[in-house]
Amino acid sequence: MMNEEMNTDRGVTGLRIADTRRTQVLLRQRPGGGIGEARCIAELEREVRDLQRANATLKRYVAKVLELNLEFPLPDAGFETTGSAAQRGGTNTVAFPRRTAPAPLRRAEAPALTSLDRSPDRPPAEVEFRVLGPVEAVVGGRRIDLGAPKQRAVLALLVSQVGQPVSVDLLLEELWEGRPPPSAITSLHAYVANLRRVLEPDRAPRKPATVLRTRGRAYLLDNRAVEVDVHRFGERAKAGWQALDQRDPQRALREFEAGLALWRGQAYAEVADATHVAPEVVRLEELRLWVVEGRCATLIAVGAHEIAVSELAAFTQAHPLREYGCELLSVALYRTGRQADALAVLRSHQKRMAEELGIDSSPALQHLEREILHQAPSLD
């Protein structure tokens, strides 16, 4: 009973992000013009099905993995409406069953720290770390030299656990792959001293460090004193999905692109294979792929179908088993007048899934194939 009430309360109001001119044309086609009002409503709801999938799925995902304490509905595959556009207080709504986020998207380690934890009254941090690629540090607006590879690796390991102490034993284990030499502890102390010097160049002698602190037999980066691009990426992703929810695809597009622009290569490149960092690398890469798909869904929503086709073609070639990317590419191809190519994408994906995984395509892709075959008006 409680689950039924939750599902009812969290029904998703159909977004009206379709192109304004197309909406006006549909609404003018009343009985006597070939399409009734009920048909108009159905087509408008179907028009946003692709974007609704990206919006609701990605928001539910960000609530899970970034632990932002948000409650979003997650649609089931196919995004079917319940009944015939049920009425609530005169408003057309589309209700979806709920499900948990896919297992690969769940954070396996400690909760993600975000700069949302920072007080809004505090000025921006003097130290910024960039780890969506090789590790970089900016102090007072200037990029600094982080020294030798192992010293850079020390910093990357600390940034991956910003705000949490990282034990000396763990650092030694990761830096020397389980075989630290007798001089390892001396080298580690030297790396930390060098990093403190470049991260706080104006710190007086013997004055305690405020950025890279000591906690017993451990070190930590104080999250009150630093900013990390990982956190800003999460904020951009969240802002993009909120913009979609507020029917502002143009702002959503800007937020998604700003977030993706922060990436310069593999996250935590220097220590991506480290035992305590690898899960975070996987999580961030999965989130990046969701944002890429969300951006392409937004391009389709604003009518930039040709751009979406070119980007999704490369994306699906690099990630052929991602079903949502395949679905978006098929929709974009169909809307550029390439019905045969749209069907070929779906059938090629279906064949790959059967041969490599021994499974069928999702119900959403099977439903899309039937609609393309019958040239469903709702796809236009």
Rank of each mutant, 00 (worst) to 15 (best):
R236Q: 06
E4P: 02
A252W: 05
L287I: 14
N92Q: 09
R203G: 09
G163Q: 03
Q366R: 15
R130M: 06
V309Y: 00
R106S: 07
L27S: 05
G90W: 06
Q339V: 13
L113A: 15
A110L: 15
E200W: 02
E37G: 08
E285N: 13
A301Q: 12
A137V: 01
Q151K: 04
L44F: 07
N223E: 06
D229I: 00
E369F: 01
L70D: 11
P120F: 03
A243E: 14
L146T: 02
H305S: 09
V25W: 03
L157G: 03
Y334H: 14
A304D: 14
V291F: 10
V291T: 13
R264M: 07
N92E: 06
G358V: 08
R179D: 14
A103P: 03
G34S: 00
G259M: 10
E47G: 04
P123R: 15
A237S: 09
E200P: 04
D222K: 01
A63I: 05
K150T: 05
L26E: 05
R288V: 00
I300H: 09
L51M: 14
P124A: 15
T57F: 11
R254H: 14
R179F: 07
R347Q: 11
E177I: 08
E67R: 00
V226D: 07
V48L: 03
A318F: 03
R288L: 02
K238C: 14
P120T: 06
L132P: 01
V345K: 01
G163D: 04
W241M: 13
R338G: 08
I35R: 08
P134F: 08
R143Q: 11
G265M: 10
L146Q: 01
A63D: 05
L70Q: 10
P104I: 05
G265N: 12
G78H: 02
E270Y: 00
L175R: 07
T81A: 12
Q24A: 15
D380E: 07
R53C: 07
L58N: 12
V282I: 07
V12E: 13
Y61M: 14
M1T: 12
E293W: 06
R98M: 11
G133T: 12
D248G: 08
L221F: 04
A103N: 06
L379F: 00
E173W: 05
P208Q: 05
G178V: 10
A344N: 14
M2L: 15
E371S: 11
L188P: 00
V139E: 08
H349T: 08
E43H: 09
Q87D: 10
K351M: 05
R254Y: 09
V135H: 02
M2H: 12
R152P: 00
Q375V: 13
K238M: 15
A103Y: 03
R46L: 13
R352K: 10
L132Q: 03
F315T: 07
V166L: 14
L328A: 04
T298P: 03
A272F: 08
R28T: 08
S348R: 13
A108C: 01
C296F: 07
G234P: 05
I372C: 04
V166A: 03
E280S: 11
R118A: 10
P75W: 01
L171D: 06
D19K: 13
S348K: 09
Q24K: 12
K59L: 15
Y324T: 13
